[in-house]
């Protein structure tokens, strides 16, 4: 059974819908990557899953339960984590406080999770008393991902985690994403760095105009000449 599935989802901010029938399904072991041109509705798809965009038709199921239009603070306890693209830290809170906010919904002790997040992102441990607003872009992205992991999600959704990062950090962040996935967390992410992202993806979705153009494994999409020409720039990767 898929961890999350979107069936012909239509939705938007009111007025003309931005999503015109998106189909996505991934399992807990998957890394799903959504790529596509600007305005294709990639970020909107994530927001629709997270209840930030109104869904007017279609179904969104998480572990078989319909979660369309649920409130975010109801989704987090169910096991969804979401890292927005911009403004994804609390700048005046310390790194540790940022992480604690990720565990806000948890009633149990979260010391172990905190330790494992620090293990995954060692720089955060050093800077845990520093304000998140004072960190570099890459470190902020770590804080943001760490914050989402603190809620022990089953599915982690990332909106362009590599945006604005230096190539060194992009590689590091992607490595961490793979590691998180190996730890049993399903990943659904939107990426501009399509080629790199599809390389680690087990499922790939190409969106355009708010609907699926191509769906397949990451490798299939990378090899597809049509996809490569239209969305990856240049011919199929070697």
């Amino acid at each position: 059974m898929s961890l999350i599935s979107l069936d012909a989802v239509v939705g938007g901010y009111g007025g003309v819908p931005i999503l015109n029938g998106v189909d996505i399904a991934i399992a807990a072991s998957d890394i799903g990557v959504i790529v596509g041109p600007n305005g294709a509705g990639k970020s909107t798809t994530l927001k629709a899953v997270f209840g930030l965009v109104k869904v007017t038709a279609g179904a969104i199921r998480f572990e078989g339960r319909d979660i369309a239009n649920a409130r975010p603070d109801a989704l987090v306890p169910m096991g969804l984590g979401y890292v927005p693209q911009e403004k994804n830290v609390f700048p005046s809170l310390t790194v540790q406080e940022n992480l604690e906010m990720g565990a806000f919904i948890r009633a149990d002790a979260y010391g172990d999770t905190l330790a494992s997040v620090f293990e995954m992102f060692p720089p955060l441990k050093e800077k845990r008393r520093q304000k998140a607003g004072e960190l570099s872009g890459g470190q902020r992205q770590m804080v943001a991902m760490g914050r989402a992991l603190m809620g022990k999600p089953k599915l982690l959704m990332l909106d362009e985690p590599s945006a604005g990062l230096s190539p060194k950090y992009v590689l590091e962040i992607f490595e961490r994403i793979v590691a998180i996935n190996r730890g049993g967390v399903g990943i659904l992410m939107v990426e501009q760095n399509a080629r790199q992202a599809l390389a680690i993806a087990s499922r790939g979705f190409v969106l355009a105009g708010g609907r699926n153009l191509f769906t397949g494994t990451g490798r299939e999409l990378l090899a597809d000449p049509e996809v490569a020409r239209s969305f990856l720039g240049g011919g199929p990767a070697a």
Binding site: P72, L75, V76, Y82, P84, F90, M101, I105, G151
Partner: peptide, 12 residues
Amino acid sequence: DNPDLAQVSGIN
């Protein structure tokens, strides 16, 4: 600090 992020963090 950031109401949108607070909301997606599950803060009521």
